[in-house]
Amino acid sequence: MSRTLATAKRVLQQLSHDPRSVALIVVLPSLLLLLFRYVYDGSPAVFDRVGPQMLGIFPFIIMFLVTSVTMVRERTSGMLERLLTTPLRRGELIAGYGLAFGAAALLQSLVSSAMAIWWLELDVSSPSAVVILAVTDAVLGTALGLMMSAFAATEFQAVQFMPLVVIPQLLLCGLLAPRASMPEVLERVSDVLPLSYATDAFSDLGTGATSTGFLAADLGVLVGCSALALVGASLTLRRRTS
């Protein structure tokens, strides 16, 4: 446990020496949301429908990118090899990363949700549920980023996993077209993609058609997927390599 906390602290210390990255993490989703709001200035109904979903999707994408690149750097620099020769366990390392980026995600979500709700007057039924779901989405992005970093040999490849892992989920999650209107095969695929559940939950929050039961189920799926991806990520850390 103490090694997990030490790892989280180390990751945050690294971030703190990189103010530009901190600024990007904290304000980028808010800026994108602002842009989105004024692109649809003429049809506020679109912003009201899609805005809440964006609150969940931006942190997911940003955290996926930040984490996968960070982890590839750790793998290719020889740091990972050295860390794995210390008493640090693989699960402790991954949990430390999850914790640090989860904390960054909390700050990010607080800022973007606050701006969306109070400044852009986005209508959501439960602000606290928005923050909880946004953080969960960010943790999911972190977990998938940690796992996918195992398949990237360079940072260049890691960046390109973003379109590979994220864009299909964006297309299928119900953001552009309702999932029920898709061909059955695509609907089935969207059923197993975690981002679909995030989008469902945020749509419910936006329309006010919130049933606590549905929200809790969506949240449960997201937490479960994050946990699976974190376990998968720690299994990809090989102590012995060729």
Binding site: A6, Q13, Q14
Partner: peptide, 20 residues
């Protein structure tokens, strides 16, 4: 293999905490 974006002391404190 130490972290270039940490100070010397921060690096050492991290490795210290890994080995108690």
């Amino acid at each position: 293999s130490v972290y270039p974006d940490l100070t010397v002391r921060q690096n050492l404190r991290y490795f210290a905490s890994l080995s108690d």
